[in-house]
Structure formats: structure tokens, C-alpha cells
Write a protein that binds this DNA or RNA. Sequence first.
DNA 1: CGCGTTTGACCCGCGC
DNA 2: GCGCGGGTCAAACGCG
Length: 335
Amino acid sequence: MTEKREEEMEASSTAAEAAILPPFSSQTPSVFPFVGGFFDAADDGGEKDSLGFLELLGLRDLHHPPPSFLFDHLPQRTPGADPPPDGGNIPATPSSISTSSSAEAAAAAGAAAIKPSTSSAEAAGDEGSEQQRKSGKTGKEESGKKKGQKRQREPRFAFKTMSEVDHLEDGYRWRKYGQKAVKNSPYPRSYYRCTSATCGVKKRVERSSEDPAVVVTTYEGQHTHPSPVLPRGHAHQSLLIPPPPDPLLRPPPLGFSVLPPKGLHLQLLGSYLPLAPAPAPPLNFFPTAAAPRPLPPLTPNSMITNRTAAEGASSRDHGLLQDLIPPEIRKNEQL
DNA sequence: CGCGTTTGACCCGCGC
DNA sequence: GCGCGGGTCAAACGCG
């Protein structure tokens, strides 16, 4: 069952792409939908305090559909009460985003075809689900798996980025635990798990078969720990990307600290467009309420960066960029 | 030596 | 029941 949803979710990789990208492709044919206007328009709604990283990303401005975020199952506290809190008032914009916190939402989202993967209640305790799975595997003989209990999935959050690297850095450390070929796609899907022992967050990374430049990253679960912020040299991995928007979408579970990863407020969010034929429009992502910091105009080869005004961040970002951006491109940017 | 990746095997759920 | 496809495990391996 959940598998089915998974498929649908995965379909989001395809279907969602079909559903999400096209509308933007008309505007930004070869550019990741995270276009400047989207974030630029993210004026402060005065709800900073309750803002999740979505807001940080500028998703506050819900008038501008968040193009590449896919929400699979945004658990709601009250199954019946679908309407998310104003802070999490994420429109199920068919062409852009699907909260899929409920069937209605999914239905509303329609094109996104993303459905809730689990009931909210079950999703809340999803660590168990993984345990179940594991027990099912290792202790299958011990009937570790309960019959009749379907796999429960964590709330998931998927987004797409244009990047030439598959694994986008998001401030957390991930350990790859699997890779599978995806049907109807020449590109494999990689499975990552947060290396933190107590953190069961997983993410899947796959490249869109339709648009190889697009990387679909799906987060599952919530981090139960602060971001390690690249303890070691992990910069090679790639761009900073936002963590799951759970903080926005629901109040943290009891005792659960949904700490925005340290990297969040200084994150690069972006799309690396190695060979974008057309110049990407200048993007100014200012995920936080921090004063916007003008970014240099981007070249076709440049990155779409998202950062705060934090100066310290800038230096750090640069450090990342140094690792993330090919020398020639960096040179290009500096010129 | 620790940590992360690779990869084949296995499990699970679903559709036919 | 069988096959398919997704998801996970875990041993082997590589790297710093």
C-alpha cells in the first residue's frame, strides 16, 4: 500500500515533474524553478516566529507557488482538519506543490499526484516503522513484522534541484545505504540515511529521467539533532539544500526539536546549471528575514545561490562554493 | 582504523 | 501464486 504511494510519490519524480516543471518551463525554460521572483517576493509576513524553513526559503509567499517542492504527506494533527495552520498554509497548487496532507489535499493538488503515504498518527511515530522494517528483515523469522500493519512512512518532503551532482549537501551527514535502478529511468536512485544514530531521517536522491539536469531529493522523517555542519570535508558533495519543512508544517512532536540545521540560515539553495543555454535570471534568495544581500548577476554557468545576509555565512558559503563549483566556473563568477 | 560507498541479495506489497 | 518493482540489509571494499 505504502509502496503504492511510494510509487506515486516516486511518480512525483516523474509525474510531479510533469506536473511541476512544465508550468515553469514556460517561464524559465532551462532554469530551475527557484526563480528569483519567488524568493524576492517573499516579504516578511510577520510570522517569522513560526516560520519553518519553507518560509526561510521564501515559501511564505504563497502567492508564488513553490515550484519544486513536493510534499508527500504533511502530517496533520487532526486527520479531519486538513487546512494547515496559516503558517503552514501551503497551497496545494496543482502545478507546483502538493501538501498531500490529506486525500483532499492530494486531490486538490491533482496534478501532483502525491498522496499521503500514511496517516498522521502513524507517521508521527515512524521511527517504529523503520524498526519494523528492520525487524522484518533481520528478524523475519521472529515474526518481527506485524501482520496487518502496513509500513508507515515518515512525512516526506521532496524537491527538485538542477544540479550536476546528485547528492546535495544540506548540512547533515548522510550515509548511503542503497541504490536501485528506477524503472523507466536510466538513472539510479540512491538511498541515504542520516548518520546520526538517533536520527532515522532518510532521503532518496534520483535524477529525473525527463530532465537529467533535475535532481529529485526526497526527505523522509525529521532530524532529531542539530546539523553537524559538515564535520569533515564533505564539501565535495554539493550544494546546500533545505531540510524538510516539518517545522513549518506542523508543530514539533513532543520533545522533538526540529532545529533548523545550522546550515539553514546560511544555506546555499540552489541549482547548479552547468550548461544552461539561456542566462538564468538573477536570483536573490533570502531565506530568512535577514537583510537581503545583493548577489552578483549570475551567468549561465553560475549557481543560483541562496543565502542570508550573514557575513559569516558568506565566507562559509564561499568555502563551499570553492569545493562545489568547478574552478572554471568559479573563475567565471569572479570575473 | 573509522567511515562511507558499492552491490548483490533479500524482503515486502501490489497487480495480474 | 507469481512476477515486478521499490526499499533495505549487510558484507566487501575503498579511502583518508
